[in-house]
Simulated scan of single mutants.
Amino acid sequence: MTETPIRVMLVDDQELIRTGFRLVLLGEQGIEVVAEAADGGAALAQLERLEAAGSGCDIVLMDVRMPGMNGIEATAAVVERFPAVRVLVLTTFDLDEYATGAIQAGASGFLLKDARPTELVDAIRRVFSGDAAMAPSVTKRMLEQLRASGGLSAGSDAAGSAPTASGHGLAARGFAAAPTAPAVPAPELGVLTERELDVLRLIAEGKNNGEISAELFLSESTVKTHVGRVLAKLQLRDRVHAVIFAKQHGL
């Protein structure tokens, strides 16, 4: 039986960029472009159409800077109205000040628009499987902002204006800014077993399931189970938010 392909929507105000991504994905087995949109409002309308048709969408490749509803606002709305859909944010520059705001809004990862085709495909597959997909330079920038500010407060990006989805933003999961990181793991981590805490620490170091498996001498399927339990217990959307949570809670 043929496996259901990963359904992707392209959201960018530049048709040429959407065309480029579509051509890259066209030849990829197991990935299907099901819709396109030029701004956030149109993207939400397309998701509603797909849902009504019973086909749905798995991954949204979301540009940040668009006229009308921008990518941050659209990401927040997608997370709130279509919780099963994952958003992979596309940024033009690795110093894009909106990147942190997009994570606050619920994005599952970042990718630079000049990424190689193989990186785009890999990012889509990783986000679909529940893993993180973040350009290293963007991750570095985001963690620098975390260290400088003591954390990401809900409702503000680097410029202090990024919205978050009600019930899905970082504050809803205990992501309030703290002046300094605690010297020992925070009480919020008490719901985790010792092994789950070990897994969270390694996630925070940016390790994938294979690397965690090797370090803890566990099978990858066991690691995957532990990761799922960590996310469920801490009410985190994905590994990206697990990294932020860990950094803000002393790991």
Rank of each mutant, 00 (worst) to 15 (best):
D63I: 09
C57G: 06
T91P: 00
R65T: 15
S153W: 10
S213F: 06
V243H: 02
K207T: 13
S221E: 05
N208E: 11
L50T: 08
Q14D: 11
L16A: 10
R126M: 05
V230D: 09
V87E: 04
T225Y: 04
R22V: 08
V121G: 03
L44I: 11
T75V: 05
V64I: 15
A186H: 15
G174C: 12
T2H: 13
A115R: 03
R126D: 10
K224L: 07
G40P: 07
A133V: 08
F128T: 02
M9K: 02
P182I: 02
K233Q: 10
E119L: 03
A45I: 01
T193H: 01
D63R: 06
A132M: 11
E205I: 01
V34T: 07
A242M: 03
P185W: 05
A148Q: 09
A158H: 13
A177K: 15
D13L: 00
P185T: 09
Q145R: 08
A115Q: 02
A74H: 09
G151P: 00
A165M: 12
Q248H: 09
G151D: 00
A177C: 14
M69P: 03
L202Y: 11
G106V: 07
F93V: 14
H249K: 04
I31V: 07
T100K: 13
R116F: 03
T225E: 07
V11A: 13
G150E: 03
V34I: 12
T4V: 13
H168K: 15
T75N: 02
R86L: 01
F245W: 15
P136H: 10
Q145C: 03
A172P: 05
M1A: 15
F110S: 06
V87N: 05
D63E: 04
L47F: 06
D39P: 01
A154V: 11
N209G: 12
L143M: 15
A242C: 05
P83Y: 10
A42E: 14
G130N: 05
A158S: 14
G106H: 04
V240D: 09
A133E: 00
L152V: 08
E215Q: 14
I103R: 02
G190Y: 03
R81I: 01
S213V: 03
E28F: 05
R229M: 00
E220P: 03
L90G: 08
A132E: 00
A154C: 14
S219K: 04
V87S: 06
D63G: 07
P136Q: 08
R86N: 14
V85A: 11
P163D: 09
L61Q: 06
A232S: 09
K224P: 00
V87I: 11
G27V: 10
